[in-house]
Amino acid sequence: CHSECLGNCSQPDDPTKCVACRNFYLDGRCVETCPPPYYHFQDWRCVNFSFCQDLHHKCKNSRRQGCHQYVIHNNKCIPECPSGYTMNSSNLLCTPCLGPCPKVCHLLEGEKTIDSVTSAQELRGCTVINGSLIINIRGGNNLAAELEANLGLIEEISGYLKIRRSYALVSLSFFRKLRLIRGETLEIGNYSFYALDNQNLRQLWDWSKHNLTITQGKLFFHYNPKLCLSEIHKMEEVSGTKGRQERNDIALKTNGDQASCENELLKFSYIRTSFDKILLRWEPYWPPDFRDLLGFMLFYKEAPYQNVTEFDGQDACGSNSWTVVDIDPPLRSNDPKSQNHPGWLMRGLKPWTQYAIFVKTLVTFSDERRTYGAKSDIIYVQTDATNPSVPLDPISVSNSSSQIILKWKPPSDPNGNITHYLVFWERQAEDSELFELDYCLKGLKLPSRTWSPPFESEDSQKHNQSEYEDSAGECCSCPKTDSQILKELEESSFRKTFEDYLHNVVFVPRKT
């Protein structure tokens, strides 16, 4: 048989008469490798580009789960590009990614509803959504962080984005990388972005840091009482949809009607710091009717980097990364020049730590249904340095008659930039024990000054392991946590139920 035959053949030295091919099969003959313009397919066939392209389009058009959109890589027609490569849609070739590779997620039936953290986790790592997304989240724990972890990498949506009755959302900033909504599939009414009845939605994105392009379709905003109209108009300008909307697409009466839409800028007039305090004062603000001013709200939190936005980490279910302080308005003076500047002394802060701070007014709604208010920009203030805590785990070892090696770990709280350490030492008198000992005694162990690591005695271990207080009263049991108490109650309830079950099964009433 021919060298490319495997198993047997019907005619000697003829690659077209093989029972099976050793390498690849091409047009009725066995070959060692697939010549151009053919590609290896499933490690035994040679196919042309049209064959591989037909497989790709067949799966793409069917949208069946589990099928493969075949691509070409290293002269092979394979189910998908290997790690580190992405497909070129024009020629199906796998090309190296520039940075992290995109991950295209194809949605069944063309859309997916995100109504819980669990459903959001199914899209973790996706960068391109081939379909439409509907966000409908009523509640949950730590929602802002969970949504950002699972949806934060999405850069492109081919269909539309719909935010509907998501009472738990305060902001859409968890879509931190969303840059493009194509609108290839539109919501009824030709809408590519749809926001309806979101009672706590206050911000779409921080438009000073976020760009969003909507290729096709219109915007729809109705019944978002805490979303200011200025935020919607800003989205029109940034996304390129200005002029597409009709009169009733953006409701003037049901958007922002319960919001404090600040239209003035508060400026800080005085800032002073110490290692654990920050004193702030800002310019006074009074609405047209000074009785509408209820006070100020001061927001602050630790910020290692200057990239904080107002609604980071917030949701309507209680999660809030900001510390909020309510401040009463100052006494009002008739003389504008003698107006008191409101302020606040922030206490209990960490030394040498940068804080993000902003302040906003708290006002009631005027009778004319106009909203007044003022808010400052987010500023960054760093507390002063102070003395560091003591170095940890000092170790001293003498390696000769004239040297001592000293080692330690950095302090747990540096409280500033540590530039150097101060080492103090003092000579001590020799131990009298060394002169009084009889060095001729056998088995004498000389006193040693070398360091030995501390260890816990058996008594201390027994005390720590004991669940009861000892007789001397030195140790006591740790208080039980809520989960331990709940577990004990469940076990007790189970024992009672099981005992009742045994009584009912074992003891049967005697027939009379």
Rank of each mutant, 00 (worst) to 15 (best):
residue 103 K to Y: 05
residue 103 K to P: 07
residue 105 C to K: 01
residue 106 H to M: 12
residue 107 L to D: 03
residue 107 L to G: 05
residue 108 L to M: 14
residue 109 E to L: 10
residue 109 E to V: 01
residue 112 K to V: 07
residue 113 T to M: 07
residue 114 I to N: 02
residue 114 I to C: 04
residue 114 I to W: 01
residue 115 D to Q: 06
residue 117 V to C: 03
residue 122 E to C: 05
residue 122 E to L: 14
residue 123 L to W: 07
residue 127 T to R: 07
residue 130 N to K: 05
residue 131 G to Y: 02
residue 131 G to L: 00
residue 132 S to P: 02
residue 134 I to M: 08
residue 134 I to D: 14
residue 135 I to T: 02
residue 135 I to P: 00
residue 135 I to S: 00
residue 136 N to K: 04
residue 137 I to L: 11
residue 138 R to T: 05
residue 140 G to D: 06
residue 141 N to D: 06
residue 144 A to E: 14
residue 144 A to H: 11
residue 144 A to D: 03
residue 144 A to Q: 10
residue 145 A to N: 12
residue 145 A to W: 03
residue 147 L to C: 03
residue 150 N to I: 11
residue 150 N to W: 12
residue 150 N to C: 05
residue 151 L to Y: 01
residue 152 G to S: 03
residue 153 L to D: 03
residue 153 L to H: 08
residue 154 I to Y: 01
residue 155 E to H: 14
residue 156 E to S: 06
residue 157 I to E: 00
residue 157 I to M: 08
residue 157 I to F: 02
residue 158 S to Y: 10
residue 159 G to T: 01
residue 159 G to N: 02
residue 161 L to W: 00
residue 163 I to T: 03
residue 164 R to L: 15
residue 165 R to I: 12
residue 166 S to V: 11
residue 166 S to A: 10
residue 168 A to K: 01
residue 170 V to P: 06
residue 172 L to A: 06
residue 176 R to P: 07
residue 176 R to T: 12
residue 177 K to P: 01
residue 180 L to K: 11
residue 180 L to D: 13
residue 182 R to F: 06
residue 183 G to L: 01
residue 183 G to F: 03
residue 183 G to R: 02
residue 184 E to S: 14
residue 185 T to N: 12
residue 187 E to V: 09
residue 189 G to P: 13
residue 189 G to N: 15
residue 189 G to F: 11
residue 189 G to W: 06
residue 190 N to L: 08
residue 190 N to A: 14
residue 190 N to T: 07
residue 192 S to H: 01
residue 192 S to R: 01
residue 192 S to K: 01
residue 193 F to I: 11
residue 193 F to C: 02
residue 194 Y to N: 13
residue 194 Y to C: 15
residue 194 Y to H: 11
residue 195 A to H: 03
residue 196 L to G: 06
residue 196 L to F: 02
residue 197 D to L: 15
residue 198 N to L: 05
residue 199 Q to R: 13
residue 199 Q to D: 15
residue 199 Q to N: 09
residue 199 Q to S: 05
residue 199 Q to V: 13
residue 200 N to W: 02
residue 203 Q to L: 05
residue 204 L to P: 02
residue 205 W to C: 02
residue 205 W to V: 03
residue 205 W to I: 02
residue 207 W to V: 07
residue 207 W to C: 03
residue 208 S to L: 14
residue 209 K to M: 12
residue 209 K to C: 14
residue 211 N to G: 07
residue 214 I to N: 02
residue 214 I to M: 13
residue 214 I to F: 13
residue 214 I to T: 06
residue 215 T to Y: 07
residue 215 T to N: 14
residue 215 T to Q: 10
residue 215 T to C: 10
residue 216 Q to M: 14
residue 216 Q to I: 05
residue 217 G to V: 00
residue 217 G to C: 08
residue 218 K to M: 12
residue 219 L to A: 10
residue 219 L to P: 05
residue 220 F to T: 12
residue 220 F to Y: 03
residue 221 F to I: 15
residue 221 F to R: 00
residue 222 H to T: 03
residue 224 N to S: 02
residue 224 N to H: 14
residue 224 N to W: 01
residue 224 N to R: 00
residue 226 K to S: 07
residue 226 K to A: 09
residue 227 L to T: 08
residue 228 C to F: 04
residue 228 C to P: 04
residue 230 S to H: 04
residue 231 E to G: 13
residue 231 E to S: 13
residue 232 I to V: 03
residue 233 H to Q: 11
residue 233 H to C: 14
residue 235 M to A: 09
residue 236 E to G: 04
residue 236 E to P: 02
residue 237 E to V: 04
residue 238 V to S: 13
residue 238 V to T: 05
residue 238 V to E: 11
residue 239 S to R: 06
residue 240 G to V: 01
residue 241 T to Q: 13
residue 242 K to P: 06
residue 243 G to S: 06
residue 243 G to P: 01
residue 244 R to M: 14
residue 245 Q to A: 13
residue 245 Q to Y: 06
residue 246 E to D: 12
residue 247 R to S: 10
residue 247 R to K: 09
residue 249 D to H: 03
residue 250 I to F: 15
residue 251 A to L: 07
residue 251 A to G: 08
residue 251 A to E: 07
residue 253 K to T: 13
residue 253 K to S: 09
residue 255 N to A: 06
residue 255 N to C: 11
residue 257 D to F: 08
residue 259 A to V: 13
residue 259 A to T: 11
residue 260 S to H: 05
residue 262 E to C: 07
residue 262 E to S: 09
residue 263 N to S: 09
residue 264 E to F: 08
residue 266 L to S: 01
residue 266 L to W: 01
residue 266 L to I: 04
residue 267 K to V: 13
residue 267 K to S: 11
residue 272 R to W: 14
residue 274 S to M: 14
residue 274 S to N: 08
residue 277 K to F: 11
residue 277 K to M: 09
residue 277 K to N: 15
residue 278 I to A: 03
residue 278 I to K: 01
residue 281 R to C: 15
residue 281 R to N: 12
residue 282 W to L: 04
residue 283 E to H: 07
residue 285 Y to F: 05
residue 285 Y to P: 02
residue 286 W to T: 09
residue 286 W to N: 09
residue 286 W to Y: 05
residue 287 P to W: 02
residue 287 P to Q: 04
residue 287 P to T: 11
residue 288 P to V: 14
residue 289 D to W: 02
residue 289 D to I: 02
residue 290 F to I: 00
residue 291 R to G: 05
residue 292 D to E: 06
residue 293 L to A: 08
residue 295 G to M: 15
residue 296 F to D: 03
residue 296 F to Y: 13
residue 297 M to N: 15
residue 297 M to A: 03
residue 297 M to S: 14
residue 298 L to F: 13
residue 298 L to W: 01
residue 299 F to W: 14
residue 299 F to T: 07
residue 300 Y to K: 01
residue 300 Y to D: 00
residue 302 E to H: 13
residue 303 A to R: 06
residue 304 P to Q: 03
residue 305 Y to C: 08
residue 306 Q to I: 02
residue 307 N to C: 01
residue 309 T to V: 13
residue 310 E to H: 14
residue 311 F to M: 07
residue 311 F to T: 12
residue 313 G to R: 12
residue 314 Q to V: 05
residue 315 D to R: 10
residue 315 D to E: 03
residue 316 A to Y: 06
residue 317 C to H: 15
residue 318 G to P: 09
residue 319 S to R: 10
residue 321 S to R: 12
residue 323 T to L: 12
residue 326 D to H: 02
residue 326 D to F: 03
residue 326 D to C: 03
residue 330 P to F: 12
residue 332 R to P: 09
residue 333 S to Q: 13
residue 333 S to K: 12
residue 335 D to S: 15
residue 337 K to L: 09
residue 338 S to A: 09
residue 338 S to P: 12
residue 339 Q to G: 14
residue 342 P to H: 13
residue 342 P to V: 12
residue 342 P to G: 04
residue 344 W to M: 02
residue 345 L to M: 06
residue 345 L to K: 06
residue 346 M to R: 01
residue 346 M to T: 03
residue 349 L to F: 01
residue 349 L to I: 06
residue 350 K to W: 04
residue 350 K to N: 04
residue 351 P to K: 03
residue 351 P to Y: 09
residue 355 Y to A: 01
residue 357 I to C: 15
residue 357 I to N: 00
residue 359 V to P: 00
residue 359 V to M: 04
residue 362 L to Y: 13
residue 363 V to H: 10
residue 363 V to L: 09
residue 363 V to T: 08
residue 365 F to H: 05
residue 367 D to R: 04
residue 369 R to D: 03
residue 370 R to V: 10
residue 372 Y to A: 01
residue 375 K to Y: 08
residue 376 S to N: 01
residue 377 D to W: 09
residue 377 D to S: 09
residue 378 I to N: 01
residue 379 I to W: 06
residue 379 I to N: 04
residue 380 Y to F: 12
residue 380 Y to R: 05
residue 382 Q to V: 08
residue 383 T to W: 00
residue 384 D to V: 14
residue 385 A to F: 05
residue 388 P to T: 14
residue 388 P to S: 07
residue 392 L to S: 14
residue 392 L to A: 09
residue 394 P to L: 12
residue 394 P to R: 05
residue 394 P to C: 14
residue 398 S to N: 15
residue 400 S to T: 08
residue 400 S to L: 06
residue 400 S to D: 15
residue 401 S to I: 10
residue 401 S to Y: 12
residue 401 S to L: 04
residue 401 S to A: 14
residue 401 S to K: 09
residue 403 Q to I: 03
residue 406 L to V: 15
residue 408 W to V: 01
residue 408 W to P: 04
residue 409 K to T: 11
residue 409 K to W: 13
residue 410 P to H: 10
